[in-house]
């Protein structure tokens, strides 16, 4: 007898906490999405935190082809201007002026706003 239809492919994604990205874990075989869901976590995330799990039929995923990956993902490594890498020299300049650098750590710390009285 044929069991072929039992073996549907699902891709499993999970999220660790509300801030983390969705991460592709692996794929599994299951007869349907309900069963895929009940199997996913203990197959791939039994040693880690999980906040959310997605199962997606593999056939529903349009991934890049080999050609696309080679054609569309190649960038020249000259985009430092888009990153902080280009501005490291500022640290010294600010230092000379007895000022701190507005780096990631500093700016992120701004989310804590001092409370005012009254």
């Amino acid at each position: 007898m044929n069991e072929q239809d039992f073996y549907q492919e699902f891709e499993v994604f999970s999220r660790k906490n509300p801030r983390s990205g969705l991460m592709h874990q692996f794929s599994l075989l299951a007869p349907n999405e309900e069963m895929a869901m009940i199997l996913a976590q203990e197959n791939f995330m039994r040693r880690e935190e999980v906040m959310d799990v997605w199962v997606v039929p593999s056939s529903s995923i349009r991934h890049m082809t080999d050609e696309e990956r080679q054609a569309l993902t190649q960038r020249i490594d000259n985009k430092n201007y888009r990153t902080t890498k280009a501005y490291g020299y500022l640290r010294k300049k600010w230092q000379d002026k007895e000022q701190g650098m507005l780096d990631e750590q500093e700016i992120m710390s701004w989310k804590e706003v001092k409370k005012h009285r009254g």
Binding site: M1, N2, E3, Q4, D5, F6, P31, N32, E33, E34, M35
Partner: peptide, 15 residues
């Protein structure tokens, strides 16, 4: 256990 796989190959759970 093949009956289990055969059964669910047609069942489709909550589909």
């Amino acid at each position: 256990n093949s009956w289990v796989r055969e059964a669910l190959a047609v069942a489709g759970g909550d589909r």
